[in-house]
């Protein structure tokens, strides 16, 4: 492994897990969000070589058509995307958010998802999807 290879490029070009996307390559859009040991990070700003012993979860690890993760299903239900390119990052952030000390309001969710840019502007539907999952998990 070339030490220069970021975790993002390793996932996409070496392991061919292409669900994680590159949108800016500088930690400015959130499309590359994955979980490392259960915490969300920007995979474009860390070298793959730094994570040999870490557990890395990508969008492919959440669910697939036919057995979607509740957050993935909520994004479909609430139309929480348009082009879908940034969607993996939004969902990885949203799933991580469920375990973070995020307040209950829509404004809290908007702040916690602030690091995931959606140029299509599907933001309200994304927030609706996240809130639906949170409400359901409270029941």
């Amino acid at each position: 492994m070339d030490p220069r290879t970021t975790l993002l490029d390793c996932l996409r070009e070496t392991i061919h897990l292409t669900g994680t996307k590159k949108g800016c390559d500088h930690g400015q859009c959130g499309a590359c969000t994955v979980h490392i040991n259960g915490r969300r990070v920007n995979s474009c700003l860390t070298f793959a070589a730094m994570h040999q012993a870490d557990e890395i979860t990508t969008i492919e690890g959440l669910g697939e058509p036919g057995r979607l993760h509740p957050m993935q299903a909520a994004f479909v239900e609430h139309d929480g995307y348009q082009c879908g390119y940034y969607t993996s990052g939004q969902i990885m952030s949203a799933v991580a958010l469920l375990k973070e000390p995020c307040g209950p309001s829509d404004m809290d969710v908007k702040e916690y998802l602030g690091g995931n840019i959606c140029r299509c502007g599907a933001y309200p539907n994304i927030v609706a999807a996240v809130q639906a999952v949170r409400r359901h998990s409270l029941l």
Binding site: G27, G30, R40, G114, G115
Partner: peptide, 9 residues
Amino acid sequence: GASAQLRNM
């Protein structure tokens, strides 16, 4: 500052 992802790093 930054975003939740960056703050985790």
